[in-house]
């Protein structure tokens, strides 16, 4: 049950975390996975099947965009980098504010 709860919590904040991460710099898929893993000491260790649908969703909402960049000669396909858009930056601000409110109110209720 706790596993499922953790999964749901994580799902709820992934869009926010990915947008925030891209707000600090463009990144490709594996880089996003690594950075989230590192920044959370392994708590947000994501599989590809969890990350890519988030990226697709954000892309479809025009909150991020992708572009290709050749990096290594031996790669069959150029790396796909993601960057945050203007809409994404605005949305991120709203999401952060929403998160703060959620965090404070939920904690307040729990302490009460």
């Amino acid at each position: 049950m706790l596993d499922n709860l953790q999964k749901q919590f994580k799902k709820g904040v992934l869009d926010l975390l990915v947008l925030d991460l891209l707000n600090h710099g463009d990144a490709y898929g594996y880089e996003i996975i690594s950075q989230l893993d590192k920044a959370s000491d392994g708590y947000y260790l994501m599989k590809e099947g969890s990350l890519y649908p988030v990226l697709y969703r954000l892309e479809d909402k025009n909150l991020i965009q992708n572009y290709r960049q050749a990096s290594e000669a031996d790669r069959a396909v150029p790396r796909k980098y993601y960057k945050i858009t203007e809409d994404g930056i605005q949305q991120l601000a709203l999401m952060k504010a929403e998160w703060q409110q959620f965090y404070q109110i939920t904690n307040h209720v729990l302490k009460g």
Partner: peptide, 15 residues
């Protein structure tokens, strides 16, 4: 959507 996933899986495997 399938093409999107396929492309990203191949790219990820190369990493």
């Amino acid at each position: 959507y399938k093409n999107r996933i396929k492309e990203d899986i191949i790219s990820r495997l190369e990493e």
